[in-house]
Amino acid sequence: MLIEARNLTHRIADRQILDLPLLQVAAGDHHLLLGPSGSGKTTLINILAGLLTPTTGDVLIDGASMARISPTARDALRREKIGLVFQTLRLISSLTVRQNLALAQRLGPGPVHRELIDRLISQVGLAHRADARPRELSQGETQRAAIARALCTQPPILIADEPTSALDDVNAQAMVDLMLSAARTTGATLIIATHDRRIRGRFPQAIELKPTALAA
């Protein structure tokens, strides 16, 4: 398994946010992560990416225990293997769309690949907005730019949190097509957390999270 999580729980104060006994994702799989608001989807994504330490349990990425490796090694593992699209769409505010992608490649494991940057910008429909800064973009354009940035390092694992929430039907389908196509091309594993009914039919496998807000 490329990703394996066991006995994951996460609590904030006396509130349990996540309770997931087992998660197994094979290399090249494409999964939807489903669940209503508050079911812990974003928490699980942060734990899988090594951005959050679970209260209990462990995550293995390609056999490496996230709980046992050092923070530096965890950063390196994330840099080399995981591409992330956040729900809050964090583009670097002072940089243009093209510069955001170039910076991601610069910080990533591979070389800077300008043609790939231009191609991705074009594929997400932002060729005319390549030199615009995030504050000059609409929310949908920002979301598409964030997806392009996650794809531009060609990560083995692509995790996206509500990537279609701000998109209209056409763009939502186009972005899912793009992520699936990119994942198939590179053999990447794709996990998309969503409660967007429009894209449910596009994924053969789904991980269902149930609300676990239990008082201790």
Partner: peptide
């Protein structure tokens, strides 16, 4: 103001 930017840089692989 740039805490979010810096967090994003960390996520993308910038060293602390």
């Amino acid at each position: 103001q740039r805490e979010a930017d810096m967090a994003m840089l960390r996520v993308m692989g910038a060293k602390p």
